[in-house]
């Protein structure tokens, strides 16, 4: 196998890594927003399950979660591909962390803004969607980006449920070429570059949404 072919295969794996991670980050953020609202709810029916969710998904190794979901979904009659199982696992795990991040942000939204929203006649749902969540998102953006980078790195674990992303591709190639040292080093470099890109997007977004901030 020539090195051009190797490069193409590695980049193909990297593409799947990015796709799976970005999809999981987006889904996880959406679920996390709902869970964070649940955690802060005064109704115990919402608060208790939300806290249990966060505690469970933050307390169990991602590898165990992935293996569990990969085997559990078919056992309860849901047939998904390994990519589907991987995205489900990553999304649920990152949702727990993002919920905890957003909860911190929601709690530090200035009281005056919420009172003003109430005065303007927004109901509780509108207040959450229009005022509290956007402000919390802005306040916690560094932590959210940090978690996105963690998920990109953690996505290497989905190689164990048979998703041929960057890590699995590297494993397969190093088994067939007997060059694990170079290939895993290359994979490391690719991960590093993707992370660097993510943190660049993060600091760009942080600057772009600075408007209206003291």
């Amino acid at each position: 196998m020539n090195s051009w072919k190797l490069w193409m295969l590695l980049l193909q794996g990297a593409g799947l890594t990015v796709a799976v991670s970005l999809l999981s980050i987006a889904i996880g953020l959406a679920i996390g927003a709902v869970i964070s609202a649940g955690m802060l709810s005064s109704k115990q029916v919402f608060a208790v399950p939300s806290r249990l969710f966060v505690s469970f998904f933050r307390g169990v190794p991602l590898l165990v979660q992935l293996l569990l979901i990969y085997n559990l979904l078919p056992a309860i009659g849901i047939n998904v591909s390994s990519v589907g199982a991987a995205i489900t696992g990553l999304s649920l795990c990152t949702a727990a962390y993002q919920a905890e991040n957003l909860r911190g942000g929601l709690m530090s939204v200035p009281k005056g803004l919420i009172e003003a929203a109430e005065m303007a006649g927004l109901n509780a749902t509108q207040q959450f969607r229009r005022i509290r969540l956007p402000i919390a998102f802005r306040l916690t953006l560094p932590a959210i980006i940090n978690e996105a980078i963690m998920i990109l790195k953690a996505s290497s674990l989905v190689s164990v449920v048979g998703v041929v992303e960057l890590t699995r591709m590297t494993q397969d190639l190093s088994a067939s070429t007997y060059r694990p040292l170079e290939l895993f080093a290359m994979a490391g470099v690719i991960y590093f570059i993707i992370n660097w890109g993510l943190s660049f997007i993060g600091s760009y977004t942080e600057n772009a949404i600075r408007w209206g901030r003291p």
Binding site: P180, L181, F184, A185, Y191
Partner: peptide, 17 residues
Amino acid sequence: VIRGTPFLIQLFLLYFG
């Protein structure tokens, strides 16, 4: 570099490389 790469890749590099 260590913080920017997955733990699994580091392990593979160490164990197989």
